[in-house]
Amino acid sequence: MYQEIFSKYTPTKDNLIYILHDIQDSDPQHYISEEAVQAISEYLNLPANHIYGVITFYSMYSTTPRGKNIIRLCESPHCYIKGSENILRKMKNSLNVGVGETTKDGVFTLELCACLGVCGNAPVMMINDDVYGDLTEDKVDDILAKLREVK
């Protein structure tokens, strides 16, 4: 099942990062499974521990299954003084999960992240590939509700 992704890349180590990106993006649970690591290990002829080392080093990769929508709320200094803690509290309450956890229905995973470089609109979060800025507690519910509706 990973062959389609592998066929886009030559089996050299420098392609590991991109293969990991592609595999994670194509997985409905947005993570890199043990089977995937084994398959990559064979394709790139790299030890599995090297691949685990890389996966756990970078914040964008996950080795545990995640929700359909991945929320990444910025906790860096600028968002922090603009009230990202309040947004986090609100989000935890609305979703009834802690940081790094997935909602029971599997729709959302809540994560924290470092500066997203959209500080002009702090506090900021990214959900999947989209940036949401100038967050307020009221806005959070609207955004979550809209995403829940998407089938």
């Binding site: 180590k13 420098d14 990062i17 090297h50 890389v54 970078y58």
Partner: peptide, 19 residues
């Protein structure tokens, strides 16, 4: 793939090499 330290030039090169 998300690591602040990769702004350091040699760490960036390591990352480019797939490490």
């Amino acid at each position: 793939a998300g690591a602040y330290v990769c702004g350091e030039e040699t760490a960036l090169i390591e990352s480019l090499e797939g490490n």
